[in-house]
């Protein structure tokens, strides 16, 4: 497997940090090496939030993403900011509500209704990160769905299993129908 450098960006409180933790844990469970890190401002909610995962079969030394092979953007602000300067091979997953800026016109851009699906299909907006995780896992063929499911179930608060499972299934469905 080639080294994957994933960057997830959104607004504080959307759960992108947890999403990267889950992806890193899933990769680890799948026998790969993974590192996860994040950067954020002083706000606990709102403000821009960026979190990263590197997945590789080999040792991972530098811990930050240098050339993203994948970008997830959940807000226009984060798409505009992190869309700049991307390698042409970087795959971008953007929420369907966002406008695609010129700078990524030549990239493969997947528009996925993550926020809407969480809100209207799953029924809770806060599950957007879990919907996203499943969509990313499916799009990148990272680990089997069952592996991802086990990781998610171990990370979430008790009593939210059913809704998070629904979020995972809907997320995978979104990516499969692309």
């Amino acid at each position: 497997m080639a080294k994957m450098e994933l960057r997830l960006a959104g607004s504080g409180g959307q759960g992108v940090i947890l999403a990267t933790i889950i992806l890193a844990e899933a990769a680890l469970s799948g026998g790969k090496n993974a590192v996860q890190s994040q950067s954020y401002g002083p706000e606990a909610r709102g403000g821009m939030c960026k979190a990263e995962v590197i997945v590789s079969d080999e040792d991972i030394w530098f811990t930050k993403v240098v050339n993203p092979t994948f970008l997830l953007a959940l807000t226009q602000e984060s798409l505009d900011k992190y869309g700049k300067g991307l390698d042409k091979n970087c795959v971008i997953m953007a929420d369907a509500s966002l406008e695609i800026p010129d700078c990524i016109k030549d990239n493969k851009v997947i528009k996925v209704p993550i926020l809407k699906t969480a809100r209207e299909v799953v029924g809770k907006g806060f599950t957007a990160n879990i919907v996203a995780v499943a969509a990313i896992n499916e799009a990148l063929k990272l680990v089997p769905f069952e592996t991802l499911r086990d990781v998610v179930m171990a990370r979430i608060p008790k009593g939210t299993e059913a809704i998070n499972l629904k979020a995972l299934e809907e997320g995978e469905k979104l990516a499969k129908t692309l």
């Binding site: 090496n33 993974a34 996860q36």
Partner: peptide, 9 residues
Amino acid sequence: EIVGHLREG
């Protein structure tokens, strides 16, 4: 902060 906030296996 690099190591403190880093997650890895």
